[in-house]
Design a protein around this nucleic acid. Structure first.
Lengths: 391, 391
DNA sequence: AGAATAGTGTCTATGAGACAGTATATG
DNA sequence: CATATACTGTCTCATAGACACTATTCT
C-alpha cells in the first residue's frame, strides 16, 4: 500500500517554524510530504519564498505552478494558520484546492467564509494518528478521503479497408508528449461521465453521438496511473461507421485512425498512460458484444450488404468465416437486418442485396465465434489473468 | 444569440459604488449581470453583505453558495479591485473561479500571484466595448474540471435456503438514514477502487477477499446522484458462499442478508441513492456470467454436489432446470468440477458425489439459459432500455 | 467463356431437451 | 415395500459447419 501523501500550505515567510514542525510530524507518521520541499529557505524576501532545492532561475509564477501540481497530486492538504491567519496568496491557492474537492484540514479555524465541518480542525499529531488509524485520539479524525479528477477515455473503433482501426491522438503536451493516446478528457461541471464521453466523441469525430453506441467498459483507478495526480478514468467503447479521413472537427487535427494490431498493446511505451490495457479491454468487450448483440451493424453505414457485415465480424474477431453459413445465420435471425429490396451497384460478381439495421438488439441464439472445437471448456485454465481477480 | 453574462466580485462592503457603476455599464451594453443582484444593500455589517432581494433567514454560507452558483453560470467574471485590493473571502472565491478555468478580467492589476495576461486588466467600458465588438472573448483560459470523491459499492450475492440473497446495510446517518444501502465506502489515500472494494468486503463479511471474485460492473456519475456533492461510485459484484448469519465483522452490525426479489429494485425509495439500479445491473451481470464462466461454483463451499450447483443456477436465473440434462452438461465439461471420490452424507435418496472446483474459468460451449425457444432473436426489440445508450 | 461474388439446398455432427430407466439411500 | 434423490441411456430436434450448386454481374 502506498503511504498517504500530504501538502502543507500557509505563509512560509511568517510561519515556517510551524510548517516545518507539522511536516516533521507527518513524516514521522510515515506520510509523504509533497510540499514544502523540506529544504532550507534561501530567500524569504521574494513574493514566493525560495528554497535551496528550487531552480534558481524560475519565476514566482513557475514556482507557484509547480507547487500547485505537487499539492494537487497529494491525498490531502493541511493548512498551517496560527491564529487563523491565512495570507492572500495562500487564500487563492486554498480556493483552487477547495474547488477541486480535495480533503483539507486546518491547524486552527480559518477566518474565512468556508464550511469547516467538525473534525477538520486538527493538530498535526491528531491528524497523523487518525490517518494511520491506530493511535487513540481525543477527537477522532474523519476518515481520510481522496478527491480525484474523473475523466472519460473513448476507444472508437471503425473498419477501414477491411481492417479494424482505432482513433488515436498524438499528445501535444506533457506528460507522454508525442505518444499516442486515446481521445478523452476531464469531466466538466454538471456532466456525467456519459455526457463527457459523448461530448468528446462529438468533438473528435463530428458524429452525432446520441445515435452511436457508447458502452462503459472499465474504470481505471491505480493511484499512480497518471503522474499529474489522482486521475480516475472511465473507458468507453464506441463503434463508428467508416468516416471521412480527417474528421474536420475542432480538436481532431492530431487524430488518426490506427490499425489495431497486437503491437499496439504489446509494445510497452507505444501508448500513453495505461491506454494499452484500456484498448485491449475494449477490444475484448467489442468481440464479446458481437456474439450476443447486433452492434456489428453499427460499423456499417445506413445500408450495407451481408458481406460487409461479415467483414466486420472477421476484422474484429480476426478470423475467417464461411460466407454461406454466415449468410444463412443472419437472414434467419429475425430483427437483425431488414431487406431494403435494393441492390448494390455491383463491383464484380452478382450484386448483393442491401439491408438496413433491424429493431433487435440482442441475438438470442448467439453468434458464437469459432473456439476450440472440442466439446470442453478451458480458456485460461488456472492461470487467472482476468484483470479484476485478486490484486 | 444569447447575450453574454457577467458576474462581478469584489468587496461589496468597501467598493459597492464602483461595483454598481461597472454593473450599470455592462447592463447598458446589453450584457446580463448575474451577480450582484442589483438591489439595495440592507445590511453591510454581516460577514456576507445582505441585499434586499436575499432571503432574510439564509445563512452566510447559504448565500455564498447561491452566489457561487450564479458566478459559475456566467460567461466571465469581472473583479472590482480599486487600488488592487481584494478581500480575503473574495480571494477564496477567485481561487475557485480560477480553478474552474473561467475567463476573469480585473479593473486594476491584482496584488496577488496570479498570471494576468495582457488585456485582462480593463475598465468596464473597455470590456463592454470589446465584448460587443468581438475583440474580447469570453472563452475560458483553461477548460473547467471538477473533482469528485470516488467510492466503491459492492453487491455481494450468496445463496441461502435456495434463494438468492444480497448483503444490505441499514443506514445510520443522513442522507437516506434508515434506508437499506449497499455496503461500500470512500477510496482512501493510496488505494485503487479494487483495493477499496476488497477492504469493504473484508470489513463487511470477514471473508479473505483475495480469494473472492470481485468484478467491476459499472461506474455511476450522475452529478445529482448524491445530495452531499459530487460522489462517483464504481459498483462491484462479489459472489460469496453461504456465510454464518451475522458476519461478526467490525462494521457488520447493521448488515443483513436480504432476499433478492423484484420489489427491491422496483419499489422506489426502498434502497438509498441509486442503489436499486446498481443492484439490478449487478444481478444482470451475474446472470450473464453464469452462462460463460464457472463462477457458479463460487457460491458453493469447498465441496459441493451437482444438485447444489444446479440450485445456484436456478436461484440466480429464477428458472427451473432439468436435473438430468444439467448433470450431463456439467460432467461432460472438462475442468469445471473435479470428482473428489467422496459421497455426501445422505439426506434422502441416493447419496450424491462430492466435487470441488476445477481449473477452468471460461465455459466454452456456454451454458445458455432457457430463452425464447423460437429460433429468432428479439430481446428488447427497438425500445432500448440498455442504460448506456443515448441519454 | 471464365472469374468473381451472392445466395440456396442439403448432408452431417453436435449439443440441448425430453423422458424412460437404473442405482442407492431413508423410513 | 414406497419414496426420494442421483445418475445413465436414448430419442428427437435445432443449429453450426461443410460443400455442392445456382444466380448474376464484370472482363
Amino acid at each position: 500500500m502506498i503511504p498517504p501523501s500530504v501538502s502543507l500550505i500557509g505563509s512560509f515567510r511568517r510561519h515556517y517554524p510551524e510548517v516545518w514542525k507539522a511536516a516533521k510530524i507527518f513524516g514521522a507518521a510515515g506520510m509523504t510530504v509533497k510540499s514544502p520541499p523540506m529544504s532550507r529557505i534561501v530567500d524569504r524576501e521574494r513574493a514566493f519564498v525560495r528554497f535551496a532545492s528550487d531552480p534558481p532561475l524560475a519565476s514566482d509564477l513557475d514556482l507557484q505552478a509547480a507547487t500547485m501540481d505537487k499539492i494537487f497530486s497529494s491525498d490531502f492538504v493541511y493548512v498551517v494558520n496560527p491564529g487563523g491567519y491565512i495570507g492572500a496568496d495562500t487564500t487563492l491557492e486554498l480556493g483552487r484546492i477547495v474547488e477541486r474537492g480535495m480533503a483539507v484540514y486546518y491547524a486552527e479555524p480559518p477566518r474565512l467564509l468556508i464550511d469547516v465541518p467538525g473534525g477538520t480542525v486538527l493538530s498535526p499529531g491528531e491528524l497523523a494518528a487518525g490517518i494511520s488509524g491506530g493511535a487513540v485520539s481525543a477527537k477522532p479524525a474523519r476518515r481520510p478521503r481522496v478527491a480525484a479528477l474523473p475523466t472519460a477515455d473513448i476507444v472508437i473503433f471503425t473498419i477501414r479497408e477491411q481492417q479494424l482501426h482505432v482513433l488515436l491522438i498524438r499528445r501535444g503536451t506533457e506528460p507522454y508528449r508525442g505518444k499516442l493516446a486515446l481521445p478523452g478528457g476531464f469531466v466538466r461541471p454538471g456532466e456525467s461521465l456519459e455526457d463527457t464521453a459523448q461530448r468528446e466523441l462529438r468533438e473528435e469525430t463530428g458524429l452525432d453521438a446520441s445515435r452511436i453506441l457508447l458502452e462503459q467498459v472499465h474504470t481505471h483507478s491505480d493511484p499512480k496511473r497518471d503522474p499529474r495526480g489522482r486521475v480516475i478514468t472511465t473507458a468507453f467503447l464506441a463503434i463508428a461507421p467508416n468516416l471521412p479521413e480527417a474528421a474536420a472537427g475542432t480538436d481532431a487535427y492530431r487524430a488518426a485512425w490506427i490499425e489495431v494490431e497486437e503491437s499496439l498493446w504489446q509494445d510497452p511505451g507505444r501508448l500513453a498512460f495505461d491506454h494499452a490495457v484500456i484498448l485491449k479491454q475494449a477490444l475484448d468487450r467489442a468481440r464479446g458484444m458481437l456474439e450476443h448483440t447486433t452492434v456489428a451493424a453499427q460499423f456499417c453505414g445506413k445500408v450495407f450488404t451481408i458481406s460487409e457485415l461479415r467483414q466486420v465480424y472477421e476484422a474484429v474477431w480476426g478470423v475467417r468465416l464461411n460466407p454461406q453459413n454466415f449468410q444463412r445465420k443472419i437472414r434467419s435471425t429475425r430483427g437483425f437486418v431488414i431487406d431494403t429490396g435494393k441492390k448494390q451497384a455491383s463491383h464484380h460478381g452478382r450484386p448483393a442485396e442491401l439491408f438496413r439495421t433491424g429493431p433487435a438488439r440482442i441475438l438470442y441464439p448467439p453468434m458464437l465465434r469459432p473456439g476450440q472445437p472440442g466439446q470442453a471448456t478451458l480458456d485460461s485454465m488456472g492461470n487467472s489473468k482476468s484483470a479484476t481477480q485478486a490484486r
